[in-house]
Design a protein around this nucleic acid. Structure first.
Lengths: 245, 245
DNA sequence: CAGTGGTCTAGACCACTGC
DNA sequence: CAGTGGTCTAGACCACTGC
């Protein structure tokens, strides 16, 4: 039953409910709210911060969805656990690696502008024969090979070049071009590396690879990017938190 | 700008916003709302169904989150695409297979009650030495081996037996015991099968496996289940839809 | 029974988009 | 500029939980 004093700034451009979300996240992170501790009820919390109950509730909805809080009707609201992470968001490998403190680099093995047919055209929802960018890159972290990444990108979303792809992550380039990705559909599996792949990733032939196929869709509903990536299984796995209801 | 007539039943126990969610989902599924089509604005939609705008908005929030609708301020709301699926929910392999029309069976290779130490005790948040159930199962679909599943389950959540595990899926057993799973933290990767695993899964030694490590947490915040599963890479992959913001 | 979250209403003002 | 979604308020009644 922690008293939880959060500073709400009504003159800020940040929505009030979002300030509450950030505040509670911070309180959990720095230990003011410990795992398992109970919060005051919604109405009191709202009153304490001079907010309406719906605004308070909207903030708590978000925290429940992201897995930080658990609510039980008739009982109350608790902090779940320090260890449970946030819901998965659409992030690029480049950014994930940077956040983890590594130095990612990209070597562009091939880059072209070419007509899309078959699966590629279907995935990007373009008429067969539409020109798209096609890239094939080797991603290293701190100099060690980690992933082979093949991508197809719609031409009408962004202007790409080999030089650009060598220096920055694809998602960073897309964002800079005003493309807001909203949805990504992924399929994660596994297979054995062939000799060429093993050679490029610096592993023994026959080693295991994690495979990912992804289609990313922007806020205008366009299927902007198709990616077919191969990761060294000894260096990469996918983590996610699923939330029910 | 489809007129979208949904029947709302105010006497039903199903919340109004949820009836709207279901109705729009159904309209998208059966084609009344086609991919890319625009909905009326929120206020008109609410009026058409005799609902308040917040209730209408709550329904649309859910549909945006699950990836069926896209909203743009100042512009309107659109149906995204037939192909984009729902957010991932916590499901069991058993139920996924049944839904896909297969006949899953479980062979219990080992079952015991044993004290948990190390990683298992940490993952389940029990004091070291606490007794837990430990099972090792082979999952087949239509007679074909698909997965080797090792699980640890807290004793205080459910009563388990070898007979029970042979006849039903683990999640079905948990649900029947009143355990409501709310969160699952998963890590998906890959590795090579050793000889024993290859033999049991009926694949060549050295074949690729998809690996999954999962901790599932119930609505009371207990870490109920730890799972370490191995899937034939030629038969199983994980699909998910990620939604930003 | 008191206390909690779950649902719902009828408004209000604002920021952004596209013409 | 008109039209749209984004945020926020101040209530109301209900269903469920645990004592």
């Amino acid at each position: 039953m922690t008293a939880l004093k959060l500073a709400i700034d009504r003159s800020s451009a940040v929505p009030l409910y979002h300030q509450v979300v950030r505040g509670i996240e911070a309180a959990i992170r720095n230990g003011d709210l410990s795992a398992g501790s109970r919060l005051d009820n919604e109405i009191d919390l709202a009153a304490q911060m001079n907010l309406s109950r719906p605004t308070m509730r909207k903030a708590m909805d978000e925290l429940v969805r992201s897995g930080l809080l658990v609510r039980r009707r008739g009982v109350g609201t608790q902090v779940v656990s320090n260890e449970v992470r946030r819901s998965p968001e659409i992030t690029s490998l480049f950014e994930d690696l940077q956040e983890a403190g590594g130095i990612p680099t990209s070597e562009v093995l091939a880059f072209s502008r070419e007509p899309a047919y078959g699966t590629v055209a279907e995935s990007l929802h373009t008429p067969p024969g539409t020109y798209v960018y096609h890239s094939f890159r080797l991603r290293r972290v701190d100099g060690r090979p980690l992933a082979l990444m093949e991508n197809w990108i719609r031409e009408d979303a962004v202007e790409l070049s080999e030089a650009l792809l060598s220096s920055r992550g694809l998602y960073e380039i897309l964002r800079a071009a005003g493309v807001n990705l909203r949805l990504a559909h992924q399929r994660i599996g596994a297979r054995i590396a062939d000799d060429a792949e093993a050679d490029r990733l610096d592993i023994a032939p026959g080693s295991a690879l994690v495979t990912m196929l992804r289609v990313a869709i922007d806020d205008k509903g366009r299927s902007v990017e198709l990616g077919r990536h191969l990761y060294r299984a000894d260096s990469h796995s996918f983590e996610m938190t699923l939330v029910n209801r």
